[in-house]
Write a protein that binds this DNA or RNA. Structure first.
Lengths: 338, 338
DNA sequence: CGGCTCTAGTTAAGCCCTTAACTATAGCAT
DNA sequence: ATGCTATAGTTAAGGGCTTAACTAGAGCCG
């Protein structure tokens, strides 16, 4: 592989000139520039990134960190959609993506991850979500590496989904259709701040419609499809007068629909079921699911842009990405209202 | 951040000694070793990876390349499961993962990708799958970077799923249940070698059971759920006597089940439907889908192991990962046989 | 006891690039 | 003509690590 020196020799200039021409430093004649670029092209010169990293202290690597807290992290559509957004923005701006999935536990940070962070290998970090107790960003901050968090990390730069808005939109949609006897399928509220805020939004809409938020039947699952089915089974047998189920994620909503169907309810004719997240499968399920889109790729893109801004010396404001209601066929006015 | 020199000074030895002790070179007294390690610990020294990469020519970075040939690549469960396997193995062996999703087109290779490959930034490459015409590995080979392909890349080191075996197992299962009037939902056979081999396996099983493989009704979709529904609609109306549908991926199978249901068929009572891939959702669908598992994470793990072996100077043999039949509730004996 | 082989550690060159500091020339106002 | 500024390019000092080549002492043999 040709080096800077080879190019300099061929172009008849110094290595400094080549380096500067390649990084678009001003004060060079068009002639010199052309000579250099010609030599670069002829030799097929590509800068050695390791050398550049060492000399400049910049690697052009962004690490995406998502703690390996549960098994199926690579098949979590939300995380992957966020990753897609990050990837698109970083690639476009000439940054490479390093994947890091530290095994965080309550006691300690993954030592391999720690090494990586301290090795000066990356210019910045985007952390997706947070572990309930240990923060993946702590060692990062200690080392002063620019970082952006997606979610509820307590940190300077972050991007969040408008969870409260999403919860509100979802409940409002169900209320608008005329439903008043509504059940909620959630997860334990303390499990995750995003869930908490979604519930705040849901309750806000309920109160505004004159309902007593505390009286709404609610049952907790664990995000999984079977747990959604179980929750639906419970709610529908305890409260057979329900006309709608509001689920705080799509997988539980799909489980709820399956369960309702098995219990003889038709969706949406007898029962409206709505979800949250707009996972890819929501659109092709039967019936296609009414849900809230978090715009996950946008979340990733905004986070990437924010980090790159920080790397350029900027001080961007934290940002919130709006949610969208996506109306499909799993929701309809209640029977009695027809 | 402390450097090698700081450690050397504190331990009262040369930088070379520190470097060698840290890389487990022999010929050092236990005493020297201890002095060095003590200094390392006290200073919290972590080697600078950029410097190490420059000096040693090794970055400990493995690039995972999956061409961005279609939109939903980040939500393709197969790819993500493979990635998970790769990640597990690489992390364990102290390698970092760089994600690269070149935008390949028929005419040219993504220039950014090309730069990356030639920049000497990574020790090796794992390429997932292949673009029908342009190979992501061509520039890699030109540069002599160790590479392993997952799929049908024409390259020295590769890992494949036993597609023919999988097709055979799938068809055999349906035949074993007693079905003889079977429809196939596939994609155009020339679209992808893996599909071709699956079909070879399917036909082999059919012939062995005394069926005329050429007479089996077949309709092509495009991997998507709606296309599976459309294919099922076509096959079931043209051939109402069918008792089973063999689908070459899960998403089409799910679409087929939805469609069959809407046309009044019950699954599996009136119609057996089986898929291929064992995507996560297959297990929680209603009914849970009988399908073939490619053991995608294992595919990734094997590929990673193979690459690391090559990096150590080995010459591993290409490898094939077995498929498994996973029987769930979408398949049952045909009505007439009961 | 000279010469040889091990063992244990050091010296210093180099990996390839960036960039601060410097030189040199031209153009211009005074 | 002098001094100044802007332009155009060079020199050389690193950045932090690895490793080939070397030194030096110890142990051993004939």
């Amino acid at each position: 592989m040709p080096t800077l020196e080879d190019v300099a020799r061929r172009a008849g200039v110094s290595t400094a000139t080549v380096s500067k021409v390649l990084s678009n430093t001003p004060y060079f004649t068009a002639e010199t520039r052309d000579k250099v670029l010609k030599a670069v092209k002829e030799l097929g010169y590509v800068p050695n990134l390791a050398a550049r990293a060492l000399a400049a202290g910049k690697t052009h690597i962004i690490a995406v960190v998502f703690p390996y807290v549960y098994d199926a992290i690579f098949t979590d559509p939300l995380i992957m959609l966020i990753l897609q957004g990050i990837e698109a923005e970083c690639t476009q701006q000439g940054y490479n993506l390093l994947l890091s999935t530290p095994r965080l536990s309550d006691e300690a940070v993954d030592p391999i991850y720690l090494q990586l962070v301290q090795s000066g290998y990356m210019d910045g970090i985007i952390a997706i979500d947070n572990h309930p107790r240990v923060s993946a960003l702590e060692p990062v901050h200690q080392r002063g590496i620019p970082a952006v968090a997606i979610g509820y990390h307590p940190t300077r730069y972050y991007v969040r989904s408008a969870d409260q808005q999403g919860g509100y939109q979802l409940m409002q949609h169900v209320l608008d259709l005329g439903h008043r006897r509504i059940g909620i399928i959630s997860v334990p509220e303390t499990m995750h701040p995003s869930i908490h805020y979604r519930l705040v939004g849901v309750r806000q809409a309920a109160e505004q419609a004159g309902l007593d938020a505390r009286a709404i039947p609610e049952w907790d699952g664990d995000f999984s499809t079977p747990s959604g089915a179980a929750a639906a089974a419970h709610l529908l047998s305890e409260h057979p007068d329900l006309t709608a189920l509001v689920c705080l994620n799509d997988r539980m909503a799909l489980g709820a629909i399956q369960q309702a169907r098995e219990m003889g309810w038709r969706v949406p004719d007898d029962l409206t079921v709505v979800g949250y997240d707009d996972i890819p499968y929501a659109a092709v399920f039967s019936p296609p699911l009414t849900t809230i889109s978090q715009q996950a790729p946008e979340l990733g893109r905004v986070a990437a842009r924010m980090l790159l801004e920080v790397l350029r010396g900027g001080q961007p404001e934290p940002s919130e990405v709006s949610t969208h209601l996506i109306v499909r066929q799993s929701s309809a006015p209640p029977r009695t209202a027809q």
